[in-house]
Amino acid sequence: MHLLSICTGLAAPLETPKGKVMSAFVKTPVAGGRAQVRPLGIEGDEQVDLSVHGGLGKAVYVYPSEHYTLWNTMRRQALRPEGRVIQEGHIPFADIPDLPWGAVGENLTIAGLLENEIWIGDRMRFGEVELVVTEPRQPCYKFAAAMGFKHAPKMMVQAGCCGWYCEVRRTGELAVGESFELIAGDRYVTITEQFALATRKQRAGFGLA
């Protein structure tokens, strides 16, 4: 298990189905691959809507890199040009580039750990930094706007590829490429289980079983 990317973002106008809103959803990798982690998050990262991302309990958003294959595929299907003919030997929709790390709005892109393998209360221990898992992320209209297609939240709810928020237990410096260990907490509920509970109304609204 290791860290692939550290991403931050500044507040900027974001076009959404509800109109233009200020948001720091769009994240980009930090220069040099190193960043300081403070009690309220990654240094240089702004958080506009604290009901969604921010505060002590949701200071850092972590996302598994393994889900990017799904999102790249979904975007290419959703954004495919109308009437395009797929020729033999041609990779369809290759002109739609892969999403960069941070595109899902995460601060930390990791490899080797998924939602069904981590529990609320578990700790992610890096070299200097220790994070405590607090809750799953829930998709909203800003996620759909950033992905570029309206059914992106439904896809996240259906697939369960939500990622999770963390509280900062120990501050310090993070560096891309470093490994981390998982320290078990009380282990009453996994992120996958809590996400299913938290999104049950959304699932019903989306017509999902």
Rank of each mutant, 00 (worst) to 15 (best):
G207A: 03
E46D: 10
V30D: 03
V21M: 00
A175M: 13
G89F: 10
F180K: 07
R169D: 14
L70E: 09
R123Q: 13
G83Y: 09
K58V: 04
P17R: 00
D98M: 02
R203E: 08
S179A: 15
T73A: 10
A144M: 08
A196C: 04
E88A: 12
I120C: 05
T73M: 13
Q77I: 10
W71Y: 12
R137V: 07
R38Q: 11
L114A: 08
M155C: 12
K58M: 13
V37P: 01
A204H: 04
G177E: 14
G83T: 12
F93Q: 08
G32H: 01
L50V: 12
F180C: 11
H90N: 09
R34M: 04
E173W: 15
W101Y: 14
V52T: 07
L197M: 12
P92C: 10
L56W: 08
V189R: 15
G54E: 07
Y68S: 09
E193L: 07
P17T: 00
C7N: 13
E128K: 09
W164R: 14
A31N: 03
G172F: 13
V132S: 12
T8L: 00
Y68P: 09
A103I: 07
P139M: 12
D49S: 07
E173H: 12
F149N: 12
T73S: 13
G41E: 02
F195M: 06
G83S: 11
